[in-house]
Design a protein around this nucleic acid. Structure first.
Lengths: 185, 185
DNA sequence: TATTGTTATACTCTATAACTATA
DNA sequence: TATAGTTATAGAGTATAACAATA
């Protein structure tokens, strides 16, 4: 679990302070009140992490992932699996390689995902006639049913997030997309 | 929130397209030109994922993590390790449990992290006099040196991100914090 | 009884490299 | 030679549970 990113006072023995621009806004004047260092603090100082996009991205993703996994776990489906199913449903006949590119995973990571879906009867595979190395993927009726339930779950999850971010959602999504695009290039 | 995804059963015979805002940019005309579906598309449709905060959070975090790992890997330090060092440096004398809470990890996940830092001589441990179960952590001089280099790396990484997000950074960080806080409660 | 930190263990997710069967 | 998909394998990263020492 994790509290993570909260801004709360810590304590400081005066020794090792981070330079100003690295400190959290609330890091400023911390009374030491005689506590031994490092003890009793539920929320210690984060140093430069307090303002680091990368750190908060990790904390937020972690929370989001766990929350979604908790929900989708009731359908025995993990988050990565949902993404695969959604892309397959949106692109019937897609191949594993293309799918891998869409969800940013190596083909060798896609295989076990597909195999799990095959075992559960949620996905169907048909060999390509044009190129016999390829396999076309599509959801089975049962797969579409499970996906329907997952989509409800996903909508509920995103609604939780919406409550937090409000109207800023389009900008947030745009920023996240741009971060991924830029860093991956 | 999500939005009605194209629940897309069957095929895309002209009727079943995702609404515009859900499609990848190049999704527009999709002349089927005799291609079997799902082939040749470098950027297939994402369905409801296209607007899902959770999905883009994952993609962005993944990109950010890899990018930082590439940089910090030259110092033989993984991202989680940097976070731990930064928190220790900002809270000299902190204990393992408190550190774990700060970086949102279980104590059993903190132990191997600390052990790695001890082996590398970057962290020093002193038993608490007040409570002999506890160990106070602090960086060694060599740890501070390595951390200095890591901070430069981190600043460079965050500068990359800044270039992407511009002035929206405070809002972005605030949103990410709030997402984590809300979902973890 | 409760808590700190360690250990043993296991599970998930992922990638690299080697392989096959095609192309 | 190159590509699609599979396999074998390894390595992060994490957590649960049990444990010893201490509170």
């Amino acid at each position: 679990m994790g509290r993570g990113a909260s801004d709360s006072p810590g304590h400081d023995e005066g020794g090792q302070r981070a330079p100003d621009e690295l400190r959290a806004p609330d890091d400023a004047a911390l009374p030491t009140d005689g506590r031994p260092e490092g003890e009793g603090d539920a929320a210690p100082r984060l140093g430069m992490l307090a303002n680091a996009v990368a750190f908060h991205l990790r904390i937020a993703q972690d929370a989001s992932f766990r929350s979604f996994a908790r929900r989708s776990g009731q359908l025995d489906i993990r988050p990565g699996c949902f993404a695969a199913m959604e892309v397959i449903a949106s692109n019937p006949g897609i191949t594993a390689s293309v799918l891998g590119r869409a969800i940013a995973r190596d083909k060798s990571s896609v295989t076990p995902l597909i195999q799990y879906l095959l075992r559960r009867g949620l996905v169907k595979r048909t060999p390509s006639e044009a190129d016999r190395r390829r396999m076309h993927l599509e959801l089975t009726p049962s797969g579409r049913e499970v996906l329907g339930a997952l989509q409800q779950t996903a909508r509920a999850h995103d609604a939780d997030l919406d409550r937090v971010i409000g109207d800023a959602k389009p900008q947030l999504v745009a920023m996240l997309k741009k971060i991924a695009d830029t860093l991956n290039s």
